[in-house]
Design a protein around this nucleic acid. Structure first.
Lengths: 398, 398
DNA sequence: AATACATAGTCTATATCTTGAAAAAAGTCA
DNA sequence: TGACTTTTTTCAAGATATAGACTATGTATT
C-alpha cells in the first residue's frame, strides 16, 4: 500500500540523470535546449548533468544545428560504443546469441540448432555460454565494456537470484538457469520470458512505439502475450503474468498440450490449427504448411480467426490498452491476410467503448526479435542506473 | 517509455512527507523511532517532518509506550478529524451518500431509493447533490474540512475533467457526470467505477490487506473486477480495465445483457444464473432466490461454479496475482458454501505455477462497501499530496 | 537520594541538489 | 565592426537529508 519511495538528495541526481539519459536515448540527437523541454529540468541542471555524462563518455556531441540567428545548438546523443549488450534467444529449435552496441546495431551473432525435443538444460547452457564467448571474440568488444546479457526463454521465469524456469514444452521444471549461467560468465544477467522480451522490442523499436498501454500478442506454435502497463512490462507477483495462451475460451473444449482443456492455444496456436485441419507436419515444415493453409480459404481458418478475435477482445476488455500488436510468425501470417476480419471478430466480442479506443496492428519486427528484446533488458537497466562513480556492480540477476 | 520523473529538492520533501503520512495511516499509532524503520528515513528527517505535520495538525500525539528502561516513545497518528471524506455509491437500486472521518468512521449517511429502470441522470445527480448537503449538515462538519467527494458508479468511467460515464445498464451513454456534479458542489470530485472503489476498500480494510498484486472479483447481478497491480488500481488507457464480466468464455454461447454472446456474466452473474435455473424474479426477490438456489444442490450451480473457476483461472493466468478476493453479494453466497469446489475448478483450469502462488479468499467487507471505497479515493489523494502551505486546490476531477 | 544506564527524540554542521539570474559564448545581420 | 539573437555556462541562493553530538526522560542499582 505504501507506494512512493525516495530519500536523499543524491537520489534526486541519480533520478534526473536517468530521466535525461532516457530522453536522450529515445529522442535521438537532441540539444541541451530541447532537453529542458523534454525532461522538465531547468537549463542549468541540464547543462550540469550533461556535463557529467559527457565527462563519463556516456554521451557524446553529435554535430551542430543552426538556430535562426543565434548560437547554434550542439546536439547530444548517447555514445553507442560506451557499452554493449548481449541478447540471447532460447527457442524451441535454436539458441541464438547476438551482440549489440547501444544503438542496437548487431555486431556479432552466433547460432546453434537444437534437435527437436532435445532441450537438455546442460546443452542449452553450454550453447549460451559458448555463444557469449563467441560474440565477444568475434566483435572484438573488450569484455569490460559488455554491460550485461539478456536471455529470453520459453515458459515461466521466476525473477530472483536463481531465475528459476518452468517450461513445460522444454520439460524444464524448476531449472535455476540464473545460477547455472552465472557459474560460466561474469556478465550481469537479465533473464525473462521470450514473449516479454519480444514485447519490449516491439515497444522500443516496433509497432508499440509511443504507446503506454499495450498488449503484444504472440502467436507461433504456442501462444503468449506481453502486457505493457504504463510503459513497463507487467509481471505480476511472480513474473508469470500474460499467460494468455492458456486462458480458457471454451469449457471442456479441445485438449491442449498443457494438459488442460479449452485453452485459447488449442484453437489458435499454429500446431493446434494444423492439427484441427488434419495436416500432419513436423517442426521443419510447420511454417510453410501454415502459410498455405491461411490462404486456402479453409473453414478451420475462419474458426481460428473467430477464436483469435474473441481472445483479443478479452485482452481489450481486461486491460483496456491503446494498442494491440499481433506478432509471432503465425500471428503475422494470419494478420497479413486477414487483419480486417480479425478486427471485425474482435469488435463483435468486445465492449464498444474499450474497443473504440484500441487499435489492432501487426508487429513490425518479425518473429526473430527475441534476442533484440533480451538485449533491451540490459539497456533498460543501463539507462535506469548509471552511477557515475562506482564501476562495481552487485552481481544480482534481475 | 520515459518512466521516472522527479525534479526539485522540494519534491523530495513532498515525497517523503507522503511516505511518512502513508506509513502512519496504515500502521496506526506509531512512534517516531518505528517510523524510521518503516520509511527508511533517518531519525533526523522523521523528527523534522513529523514536526511539520504536527504543526499543521495533520497528525497528533496518541499516548506513550514504555521502552524497556529508557525514555518512553511518543505515539503518533493521523488526526482523524483533520478532514473528512464523502463517499457516494450510485447503485442500481439506490444512491447512498456517507461521510467519514479519516479513520473511516461513518458520521452521517443519506440514502435514496431508485425505482427499477429509473436511472435518469438528472434524478441521480439531484440525489447525489442533496445527499452531500444532507451528510454535511447532519454531521456538523464545516464544509471547509471536507476533503472531497468520491463517487462509485456502474459502467465505464473515462477519467478526466468531465468524467464521462458509459453505463449500459443505466442507459447512460457519454454522460459527463463530473461536469454535472461540479456545477452543484464545491468539493473536489473523484469519480470511479464502483467495482474499482469497492476493490480499493477491500485492499485497504478487507481481504486484500497486505498484498501488492491482487484481483477483486465482484459477482452480483452483473460481474466485474478490480485489478490491483503493484499496490494501485490498474486502469489501463481509458480507465475501463477490468471488464471481466464480458470476457468470452464460450464462443457463440449464451446471450448476455450487453448484447454479446458467451460472456462470463451470462453464466455466473446472479441474474443469468437464476434465468438458467428457470427462476423468475424481480430485483426485490433476487437475492433471497439466489441464496436458496445456491444451497439447493441444483446442477445449474455446479455449472456456475465450473464457469466461475475457469473465469478465476483466466485472471490468475493473465495477472499472476498473489491473491484473488471473491466479493459481491452473489460471489459471497457462492463462496460461503462452495469455496473449496471453486478453488478446485480454478486449479483445474489454471497453469500450476501461477495457481500455486495465488490464494483465493472471500471478501470481508460485505457488498455495501462501494461508498467506503469511494471515500478512500479522497483519502488516497489526501495522503499523497498534502502541500502544507497552499490550501487552494486545483479544481480538477481525477 | 544519587548515580549509572538505556532509549527516544532534537539540534547542528555539512555536503548535495536544483534553480533563477546574470554572464559568456557563438553565431547572424546590417 | 557593432547590434542583436539564441544557446550554454557560471554563480549565488535556498532547500533538503544525513551523521553524529546532544538533550530528554525513563528504569535499575548502589
Amino acid at each position: 500500500m505504501v507506494r512512493p519511495e525516495r530519500r536523499t538528495v543524491r537520489d534526486l541526481r541519480r533520478g534526473n540523470r536517468a530521466v535525461l539519459l532516457r530522453a536522450l536515448y529515445f529522442a535521438g540527437p537532441t540539444s541541451r535546449h530541447e532537453l529542458t523541454a523534454l525532461t522538465g529540468l531547468s537549463a542549468a541542471t541540464v547543462s550540469n548533468v550533461t556535463g557529467d555524462l559527457l565527462a563519463d563518455d556516456i554521451i557524446v556531441e553529435a554535430g551542430l544545428v543552426d538556430s535562426d540567428g543565434g548560437r547554434p545548438r550542439v546536439l547530444l546523443r548517447v555514445n553507442p560504443t560506451y557499452g554493449f549488450a548481449i541478447g540471447v534467444d532460447v527457442g524451441e529449435t535454436h539458441v541464438r546469441v547476438e551482440l549489440f552496441d547501444l544503438d542496437m546495431n548487431e555486431l556479432a551473432k552466433s547460432e546453434f540448432a537444437l534437435r527437436p525435443g532435445a532441450h537438455d538444460v546442460d546443452v542449452v547452457v553450454r550453447h549460451v555460454l559458448s555463444g557469449i564467448d563467441a560474440v565477444v571474440a568475434d566483435s572484438g568488444v573488450p569484455p569490460s565494456k559488455v554491460l550485461g546479457v539478456g536471455v529470453g526463454v520459453p515458459g515461466i521465469v521466476e525473477r530472483g537470484p536463481e531465475a528459476m524456469i518452468h517450461a513445460q514444452t522444454f520439460g524444464w521444471h524448476s531449472v535455476p538457469l540464473g545460477s547455472l549461467l552465472r557459474a560460466g560468465t561474469p556478465f550481469p544477467l537479465h533473464i525473462d520470458n521470450g514473449a516479454k522480451t519480444m514485447g519490449q522490442a516491439e515497444m522500443w523499436f516496433g509497432a508499440g512505439r509511443g504507446s503506454r498501454h499495450a498488449v503484444i500478442a504472440l502467436i507461433g506454435s504456442g501462444v503468449g502475450a506481453s502486457i505493457i502497463a504504463d510503459g513497463v512490462t507487467y509481471r505480476g507477483a511472480n513474473s508469470s503474468a500474460g499467460e494468455w495462451g492458456h486462458t480458457k475460451i471454451a469449457i471442456g473444449g479441445r485438449g491442449c498440450r498443457c494438459g488442460g482443456r479449452g485453452c485459447l492455444e488449442a484453437y489458435i496456436g499454429a500446431e493446434a490449427v494444423l492439427e484441427r485441419a488434419g495436416i500432419d507436419v513436423d517442426t521443419s515444415t510447420e511454417q510453410a504448411a501454415f502459410a498455405e493453409l491461411v490462404t486456402s480459404g479453409s473453414p478451420v481458418i475462419d474458426e481460428t480467426v473467430e477464436y483469435l478475435g474473441a481472445g483479443l477482445a478479452n485482452l481489450i476488455n481486461l486491460f483496456n490498452p491503446e494498442r494491440i500488436v499481433v506478432g509471432g510468425w503465425a500471428g503475422l501470417l494470419l494478420g497479413q491476410h486477414l487483419l480486417t476480419t480479425i478486427k471485425q471478430r474482435a469488435a463483435e466480442n468486445c465492449l464498444t467503448q474499450p474497443y473504440s479506443t484500441a487499435s489492432i496492428v501487426l508487429g513490425r519486427l518479425g518473429p526473430d526479435a527475441v534476442a533484440l528484446g533480451a538485449a533491451t533488458l540490459v539497456v533498460d537497466e543501463f539507462l535506469l542506473s548509471t552511477t557515475s562513480s562506482s564501476v562495481s556492480r552487485e552481481p544480482a540477476v534481475s
